[in-house]
Design a protein around this nucleic acid. Structure first.
Length: 217
DNA sequence: AAGTCACA
DNA sequence: CGAC
């Protein structure tokens, strides 16, 4: 159940916005961690470089991906799965940095999901023109655990729909530092990201980075 | 099919 | 928005 009232910051903008049953957008939640998050992404990407994966139907995704944690989400011609190893290197994914765990657990708790302990973080890099079409996160073992999504860099329009693909979809602008948490009744809701527009972010330049935390195994 | 295209 |  969402709170009766959204919290309001000093500028009058909602800091916490309910977007569906069990789903919350936490505006600017990641800002206190931005420097540590970005440094950690660089370390991870040096060990497991961003790569554009292939879908089962043979298309190359516009979003470039890497992972950290005990398992990483991957796709290839054989399908979607969580893999403990980076298929490109054969090595385990880089460990999940403590700052990642802390932010994900804090955000989940604020959304009403205590004890969130993600074992996987998918890191998505959107250059201008990249997009992610409407889909469900359903490759995880335990749907009782929520999803935590952290936005960094260029803004993007987040689509959030329902459990059925034809359900109505709403759009929410996501800016640097925003965190979306969804779970419970909305755990399997369809979601996506519209084509990222060109622009320049002071810290990240011409890119959007998204961190998606999941309990996958 | 987490993508792309055809068509209304 | 549906078909592939």
């Amino acid at each position: 159940m969402d709170d009766l009232f959204d919290s309001i910051d000093m500028n009058g903008a909602p800091a916490r916005e309910g977007i569906a049953e069990g789903a919350v957008l936490l505006h600017g939640k990641a800002l206190p961690y931005e420097t540590a998050l970005l440094a950690a992404v660089d370390v991870i990407a040096a060990q497991a470089p961003f790569r554009r994966m292939v879908t089962p139907s043979g298309y190359v995704m516009s979003v470039a991906m890497t992972n950290c944690g005990r398992a990483g989400w991957v796709t290839d011609r054989t399908g979607y799965r969580y893999d403990r190893q980076d298929p490109d290197s054969g090595r385990p994914w880089p460990a999940m940095p403590p700052v990642f765990r802390v932010l994900a657990a804090e955000a989940a708790l604020e959304a009403g999901y205590g004890g969130f302990a993600p074992d996987s973080c998918l890191i998505n890099r959107y250059l201008p023109g990249a997009r992610l079409s409407l889909h469900q996160d359903k490759d995880e073992r335990d749907f009782s655990q929520p999803i935590v999504s952290v936005s960094l860099g260029l803004p993007a329009a987040f689509q959030f729909g329902g459990v059925k693909r034809k359900d109505a979809v709403k759009r929410y602008p996501l800016r640097h530092g925003d965190v979306v948490v969804w779970g419970g009744p909305s755990r399997l809701f369809h979601h996506g990201v519209l084509t990222v527009k060109d622009g320049t972010h002071p810290l990240l330049g011409r890119q959007r980075i998204n961190l998606t935390f999941r309990a996958a195994l």
